[in-house]
Design a protein around this nucleic acid. Structure first.
Length: 426
RNA sequence: GGAGAGGUGGCUGAGUGGUUGAAAGCAGCGGUUUGCUAAACCGCGGUACUGGUUAAGGCCGGUACCGGGGGUUCGAAUCCCCCCCUCUCCGCCA
């Protein structure tokens, strides 16, 4: 959520920022009108309340002195009704204002590329060379099904299209990668590991920005009024909901969770294999930092995500998303894309964003600065990294002509020394 | 799921329908004392919204806030209703 005071005082800048990301700016007009109305009403009712408080105190005194209070009481009764009526009207305006505020996306950071869609994203840097084979590269589906470590047929039978089912070394590799990434972030990058709930309520979903706009994309359990998380960003960021953080900043947290996405409207797009699925595992990183440091922390966060891929020897590139491509809550965002030879394309496996105080304002996460002032923290998050697609890249990059997979060196210890995945008996 | 007990400031914990924004203690901040630290003593406090004022830090007001939401009342932390959460016991259960 944007700061209403910022909209009031810096309307031009906010409006320009929102325009640059293609957002509707007419809402700003509406917000300002509602805000003005609200403040006028507040001034009025607060004067009445002030009078009521004064009179009530007086009545208390009269009663104490044993004097007649009936006259004063009946006079006050009418005032009470007027106050109740005004309060009711203000509540309506308040709710309307809040509802509108929740639909306004974050203002993009000034330095990021301006553009309507991903074509305007800026190449930042690359690591490694896209792999070339002297045979035709197979897709992860061909490789995985032939090796018997990926079984989409059985998955579809029990759950439908878009659910992964890993078998034997496939399942083992999934687990190994989770452990590898968590160990890296905890032991070397200084993150605190948590294992959070994967069902969250509407308040949490609104806090990180999934609601109200992404409701269609989430699985919702009506009986319990809970949503299945589309990313661990939700429970990890909401860890400090409505708190004033007393620990020293920056705070770094990491969590492995499954993630659930309905992918409504994505039918037919990247549906082959496990690139876009309804359920996938992910290791997520979240940071709570002081405002002054958040852009530096974003670079460090990106570095932590990159480190995962470097250690796995996978070629990747980093793109800085343009104004039209960043997510609702983000002010700045980098994507990391892995090269997948079987797809002959780049796969997004990580997204590292700075939300500034946008989420903190919605969730109520604050801290005390050096002067003892209470301020909103800045929140950041980054995938570290998404698993189904990482697995795709490992299979497709590690493939040999006979369909076997050479595993990245750093994952071998997590596989009990297994260096390759081969078909049983070959 | 059933029964009971609770939810008060950063924390612990008092609280009679009427100067209670809220005792007390701890922590915190400021000060005095002091080679330094510690201790002792004195003093100060919250948050949000909002108005005025200031170049600004700030200063001076108003309103609201004692789990959340309704209600009674001139007036509610205090009384009533609904909901949520925590704890104890019972039941069920990986």
């Amino acid at each position: 959520m944007l700061d209403i005071k910022r909209i009031r005082e810096d309307r031009e800048v906010v409006q320009k920022g929102l325009e640059s990301r293609g957002a509707d700016t007419a809402v700003i007009e509406r917000v300002c009108a509602l805000d003005g109305k609200r403040r006028a009403m507040l001034a009025e009712v607060e004067t009445l309340k002030s009078e009521r408080n004064r009179a009530s105190k007086e009545i208390g005194q009269l009663k104490k002195d044993g004097k007649d209070i009936e006259k004063a009481r009946s006079a006050m009764r009418e005032l009470g009704d007027r106050i109740a009526e005004s309060d009711k009207q203000i509540r309506v305006v308040d709710e309307e204002l809040r509802a509108v505020m929740l639909t306004i996306p974050n203002v993009p950071h000034v330095g990021i590329p301006i553009g309507a869609d991903s074509k305007a994203n800026r190449f930042v840097r690359a690591y490694g060379e896209p792999k070339k084979f002297n045979f035709k590269a197979k897709t992860h589906v061909e490789l995985g099904e032939t090796l018997g470590i990926l079984d989409l047929t059985r998955a579809a039978r029990m759950s439908g299209a878009g659910f992964p089912l890993f078998v034997r070394e496939g399942a083992r590799l999934e687990r190994a990668l989770i452990n590898f990434m968590l160990d890296l972030h905890v032991k070397e990058h200084g993150y605190t590991e948590i294992a959070p709930p994967v069902l969250c309520n509407a308040a949490a979903m609104t806090g990180t920005g999934q609601l109200p706009k992404m409701a269609e994309d989430m699985y919702y359990l009506k009986e319990d009024n809970l949503y299945m998380i589309p990313t661990a960003e939700v429970p990890v960021t909401n860890y400090y909901m409505d708190e004033i953080i007393t620990e020293a900043l920056p705070l770094r947290m990491t969590a492995y969770t499954p993630c659930f996405r309905r992918e409504a409207g994505a039918a037919g797009k990247e549906t082959r294999g496990i690139i876009r699925v309804h359920q996938f595992d992910k290791v997520e990183m979240v940071k709570f930092v002081e405002p002054e440091t958040s852009y530096n922390e974003l670079e460090l966060l990106l570095g932590d995500a990159e480190d995962v891929l470097r250690r796995l020897g996978l070629p990747y590139r980093i793109m800085e998303l343009c104004t039209g491509d960043i997510s609702f809550a983000a002010a700045k965002c980098y994507d990391i894309e892995l090269w997948a030879p079987g797809q002959n394309d780049w796969l997004e496996v990580s997204s590292c964003s700075n939300f500034e105080d946008f989420q903190a304002r919605r969730i109520g996460i604050r801290y005390r600065d050096g002067k003892g002032r209470i301020r909103f923290v800045h929140t950041l998050n980054g995938s570290g990294v998404a698993l189904a697609r990482l697995l795709v890249a490992i299979l497709e990059n590690g493939q040999q002509e006979d369909g076997s997979i050479v595993l990245p060196e750093n994952i071998i210890p997590y596989m009990d020394g297994m260096k390759e995945i081969r078909k049983p008996g070959s």
